[in-house]
Amino acid sequence: MSSENLDLTLMIWRQESSQSVGSFEEFKVSVSPDASILEMLDELNNRLEKEGKNPVAFESDCREGICGTCGLVINGHPHGKIPNIATCQLHMRNFEDGETLYIEPFRAKAFPVLKDLIVERDGMDKILQAGGYISISTGGVPDANEMLISKETSSLAMDAAECIGCGACVAACKNASAMLFVGAKVSQYALLPQGQPERYRRVQSMVAVMDEMGFGSCTNTYACEAECPKGISITNIARMNRDFIVAKFKSQDEDS
């Protein structure tokens, strides 16, 4: 492990609340290359608190890249420039001494800033609440091995299910589209036999809420896939598109 500290200039987005106007504030830090970027912010905050100043508000939880809570845009990249990791897994050894880091919140109309680097991502959960489930209650289900699911199908469903719902796709997209996130969820259920009864109903209700929440539409730039910390594939968006189109043309319901 390296031991020489890095001297960095941080330009951190500060914003009081969703109503106020934000701006960058400059900080100088000296940080161990073994620290993660969030640990660097912890240290900075400890220093600020000691000086009686307001610490930089940012969110994180598991710090293992699985909960999807953290999400900073570092020099333009959601979760930083290293592919396939979340912000909490980004270690300072990936930066050069003397570098300037611009640290910003995820930016999208659907993700209003609550404070500094914290944004509200509840729009994503509203989409899930609109149909991101299989309508069963607890109990009364068949034996787990009653249904045969091929390894390939199960594996494809898992590829989609690995999404951590962090919102980096929305943050990376120039249109702030949530289609990678929604596509992944729709795909997981569309692929599995358990999801078939509600397959077309589900995709329609989820897309409807997605549109209501103020996310943009996909123009197939695929920036989402490039920045996704879990490498979720845009094939999932294609699958959602197909199911949605089929649903609209197949449905006997005049109103949908």
């Binding site: 611009y102 910003e104 930016r107 999208a108 109309k109 249109n175 702030a176 589209s177």
Partner: peptide, 9 residues
């Protein structure tokens, strides 16, 4: 409209 503001970098 959906992308209200842009990133610095």
């Amino acid at each position: 409209k959906a992308k209200s503001s842009k990133y610095k970098v």
